[in-house]
Design a protein around this nucleic acid. Sequence first.
DNA 1: CTCTGTGAAGTCATTCACAGCG
DNA 2: CGCTGTGAATGACTTCACAGAG
Lengths: 237, 237
Amino acid sequence: MKSEKISELTTNRLSVYLRCLNTLAAAGIKTISSRALAEQFNLNSAQIRKDLGYFGEFGLRGVGYFVEELRQHITKILGLDTTHRVGIIGAGNLGTALANYNGFRESNFEVVALFDNDKEKIGRRVGRAGIMVYDVRKVERVVREKGIDVAVIAVPARAAQKVLNQVTAAGIKAVLNFAPATLRARHGVKLKTVDLTISLESLSYFLARPQNASITNPRSRSKRAVRASRVDERLNG
Amino acid sequence: MKSEKISELTTNRLSVYLRCLNTLAAAGIKTISSRALAEQFNLNSAQIRKDLGYFGEFGLRGVGYFVEELRQHITKILGLDTTHRVGIIGAGNLGTALANYNGFRESNFEVVALFDNDKEKIGRRVGRAGIMVYDVRKVERVVREKGIDVAVIAVPARAAQKVLNQVTAAGIKAVLNFAPATLRARHGVKLKTVDLTISLESLSYFLARPQNASITNPRSRSKRAVRASRVDERLNG
DNA sequence: CTCTGTGAAGTCATTCACAGCG
DNA sequence: CGCTGTGAATGACTTCACAGAG
């Protein structure tokens, strides 16, 4: 453990490792080497060892890592041992789809409120879980009352910056934004944007250039066995 | 124009520039300098000049770039001057939310089919646009008949790899995956994964470490005016 | 004088390669 | 032996800094 600054690329990969370890644990596998783990998502084994090395020495030389133990370590590192409470702003298609999304649960996130500015929607309950839709102007109070610590922005781009300001004013420190807009968060607030427009346009770029089979440089296909096209561009999710 | 390999980071930024140029054009602004553009998303102006430099010389020294002209260039570079036809596999919450999503339209993408394996859903029409839900086993035929060139995977993680195999077998070369799974695409197929789990867990990591106000190194806050927390981690969307 | 285009420098990330533990 | 942990080497991306066009 050497208290360096950790890159987000590293934390993203930790998520991936954790997911894999959960599967391995469920399959009853007890230990795994960095090499074997790396092969799961064609990644360099040194990368995995380095990533883990930022947080401690979890492995046993000659053996590898104990699956269950490492699983618990990463869970703790990622702060997934405590539940996070999520408020979704925007009760449109996307907002309600997210409210119904099971993936939240599996990472110990719980959606506890929706917000909207549409009078028709306010006061209703939505989705399987019957999550209440609140007036967006009441964010501050609901955040306090429900202990919300993560906001999800699912409103049109033009409203997104205003919503971000509102939720940060309410004390939220972590925001996942789906609006295709470049937002500015004040210092101390973690903003992650999932921008479908960018993703799509990047696919379009690729389609416009069939010759570039893989965008990244082709010369680096060295002696090593031909990799499947580089897994998920780089886990930027 | 020097036919180098272009990083995906560059193409992602081109999307962002384009979005901004569209706004500027709509506002009747005629020219913009790399500096002014850079300030919109606190980014270094040299970055923008470099990004554009890969594709040609679009600027005029002493002036900057002509908004309308640059807009058209980038549109062309990203292949957004031709319409792409999208098939969404998985007609659940997310799939139908995406089918209703307007953002596709704005980037010249058109959702023309949904696919599912649930007999209840197959044959129905979904959402405002009334998009037909087909049997997923008929992907190959529908792809051909409707000229689909982009697939969106919106199925549970355990089914995702199989679906990816099906759509690539049908000749699709560009896939946007929403399943939280590490997929392997065969060479020549561009796969982009939008992984909510990773995004959420990365927020969780941040929340677990309030001291790390911004994860990335704090020392580099140089003489330059304090930036708002680095815009959107790095446009990985 | 302003602003582009671009080599050169700097910073950050990944991979190599190996000492050394179990 | 095999496999971790980690400096050193490589590679990728960003920023600097400036020559030169307009």
